[in-house]
């Protein structure tokens, strides 16, 4: 859905580690408040009409709130998405967190190769015919930086 640019190179236990996060301009609290506001307005209006006898507004307001809830939940589930690339010893680790699930990919440092397009539009790691695209939440310049950093460290 969206891409972020909160990239930080962290020097911790691993030799190299970089986390890129999705861009969110609205906090979880903000999302909750917006939803609560829209819910109160919409259901309030519908209930007032129901009290006046026009109850058929209510199911439509409910349906709409359901769609709105699903939309906001989808956004919320993806709010914490991140991608972490780390080099530790002879392993290259890619950790991808998406919609609450975390996937881990491992490459052998000696075999992994960096595939990068010249404009930074695409960046991937390849090993044994397996290719994994990385740099989802980065812009072109950041991808190029990452490509350089990885190339330096990988065979």
């Amino acid at each position: 859905m969206t891409a972020g640019m909160d990239c930080s190179e962290v020097a911790h236990a691993a030799e190299f580690s970089l986390v890129a996060r999705r861009n969110n301009s609205l906090s979880t609290t903000g999302r909750f408040l917006v939803f609560a506001f829209l819910f109160v307005v919409s259901v309030g209006i519908a209930s007032a009409f129901a009290a006046l006898g026009a109850w058929m507004v209510l199911p439509f307001a409910g349906l709409e709130m359901l769609v709105l809830y699903l939309a906001f939940r989808t956004v919320d589930r993806h709010a914490a998405d991140y991608e972490r690339v780390a080099i530790d010893g002879d392993r290259v680790e890619v950790e991808r967190h998406e919609a609450g699930r975390t996937q881990r990919f491992e490459f052998n440092r000696c075999w992994a190769r960096v595939i990068a397009s010249g404009d930074g539009g695409r960046l991937a790691l390849r090993s044994h015919g397996r290719e994994l695209e990385i740099g989802h939440y980065m812009n072109d310049a950041q991808r190029l930086d990452l490509a350089r950093a990885l190339k330096r460290r990988l065979g």
Partner: peptide, 28 residues
């Protein structure tokens, strides 16, 4: 967009009541 979210269900309700008044014997 906020206005649309607030009032579109009202329109949907209004025309549905019209429809049921026309065909399903309601008397809104």
């Amino acid at each position: 967009a906020y206005l649309l979210i607030a009032v579109m269900p009202v329109l949907a309700g209004a025309v549905t009541m019209l429809l049921t008044d026309r065909h399903f014997g309601t008397n809104f």
